[in-house]
Amino acid sequence: MSGLLISALDLVLGLLTLGLAAATLGTRDQARMLMLFVTFGGVVALLWVRLRAPDVALAEASIGAALTGGLLLRMRPMLPPSDGNAPRPIRALAAALALGTFAALAWALSLVDWGARPSLAGPVFERLPESGVTNPVTAVLLNFRAYDTLLEVAVLLVAVVGVWMLSPRAPALTPLRDDPLFLALLRLLVPFLCILAGYLLWLGSFAPGGAFQAGAALSAAFLFLLLAGVPDAPGQADRAWLRAALVMGLAVFIAVAVGVSLRGAALLEYPPAQAKNLILLIEAALTVSIALTLMVLFQGGRPASRDGADP
């Protein structure tokens, strides 16, 4: 039971998380707020590691901290800060409500039996051998609860459509083409990121990793290419293949979901023998789409068309 008890590391991590959050939201300066936000993401990733959630840690570090942080930094100049403050009575009310929320949550959480909490872990580990993968998180994401993931991919598509609609011309990225150091770094980084993505993808079936983490790595590669001003990099122009690649994950997912059910089985019920391959197929397609989606979000708008007429 001793392992369950709180340690100094837990205390420090927790306090640091809270402190950084308070600092992030409390600071008046926008730039400092963003830097603190990214730092906060890093600390939270550590927290995930401490809580034995390496899959989440990887995703948090890459998507939650790095990508969201970069996105925020990129958009900040276009968002003039507002110094206005909510009226005092509102602030007082909000503070009371926040404290009340905390009290209620703390009370509820303290009532949970943390030693022997009922959970779905039992059924998951019991059926893990039938799932086709050995990483339980991947098993949940792409087999037991694959339907969630399928719909989540649709959420990504909503975001892409929304961003392109709202911003028919992506705000310009300053190419770093002329910086020799950057270009040298690029030659190393891009292949590395691509290999990393492939590795993470493959790793996902038995160890922490998977489509999201791989997608994040791949999107970093795409972003670097974009920053370098590489003419044929994805995202330099709006092309049919780019759009097709953006929705490939969703399309493959649906195709597999329906395909496996055509033999009379349920939706997304993989034949046990093919489960691993099908999951890998879906994940591969997802990786590309997720990477491109994250890149589009970072770009913050639709690249100029090079197909022909402007849309």
Binding site: I63, G64, T68, E152, V158, A159, L297, G300
Partner: peptide, 12 residues
């Protein structure tokens, strides 16, 4: 994991 992806979509 699902939540993080949804959050980044909404943030974008």
């Amino acid at each position: 994991l699902t939540g993080i992806v949804v959050a980044v979509s909404a943030t974008g």
